[in-house]
């Protein structure tokens, strides 16, 4: 029995309270799904605010949405879908023991997430310049509706919270790269890659709904 040393090394990740790697993996994944449920309800509150105010001021939404640039919204949608694809490819690489591929795919994902945030930065700063700020700070004159600030309060809350999630995702992805470079991941253990992937796909799904609801209604 000279094998166990190699075998033991492969089981570094296994915590003592789990029977085997599979049980540990499944437990982590279920934990992540429960967290995603709370995320959906977290964003759900903002979607409900959106719906309630849209039924009260349908004409406001049509008017205010023209201030949002459909082109850049669509580009950002494509960027996030692309990053979901690279995350899926990163998980596939990890499953196949291709650590180099895993790191490359994580880098591309981080780059795409940064592109998303840069576009968002330019969208926000343009609005700040012309006085489109949330709530009582709103001073833009270009929308003929006395409640125009309400639409943008909702816009900033929804896209802002989503943006915070993208930033957290970038942080997690950097953490994954660091771990991957230390050779922590292999086909028998890639749980952090898998559950970060789940988180990232959910952030993508939320944007898939934000895009038509905010940008495409004019």
């Amino acid at each position: 029995m000279s094998q166990p040393s190699a075998l033991e090394e492969k089981l570094d990740h296994l915590q003592h309270h789990f029977i085997d790697s599979d049980q540990q993996f499944e437990a982590s994944k279920m934990g992540m799904w429960v967290f995603l449920v709370t995320e959906i309800l977290f964003f759900g509150g903002l979607f409900v605010a959106y719906i309630a105010y849209r039924t009260w001021y349908p004409e406001l939404y049509m008017l205010a949405s023209t201030e949002l640039n459909t082109f850049w919204g669509a580009v950002n949608t494509a960027v996030l879908i692309g990053s979901s694809l690279t995350v899926a490819m990163a998980i596939r690489s990890a499953q196949l023991n291709q650590i180099k591929g895993l790191i490359i795919n994580l880098y591309i994902t981080i780059a795409l997430a940064c592109v998303f945030m840069v576009i968002k930065f330019f969208e926000y700063s343009h609005k700040f310049e012309i006085g489109i700020l949330p709530g009582s700070y709103y001073s833009y004159e270009g929308i003929a509706h006395e409640k125009a600030n309400i639409f943008f309060s909702i816009y900033y809350m929804m896209t802002g919270l989503h943006g915070v999630h993208v930033l957290i995702g970038i942080g997690l992805m950097i953490w994954l790269v660091v771990k991957a470079k230390k050779n922590v991941f292999h086909s028998g253990y890639y749980t952090p890659v898998e559950i970060t992937g789940l988180y990232w796909h959910l952030v993508d799904i939320i944007w898939i709904f934000l895009f038509p609801l905010l940008y495409l209604i004019d």
Partner: peptide, 14 residues
């Protein structure tokens, strides 16, 4: 099921 239930409760919320 977890995912679908979260959507169901969200629809209830709406």
């Amino acid at each position: 099921m977890l995912f679908v239930l979260s959507i169901v409760f969200f629809l209830l919320f709406i």
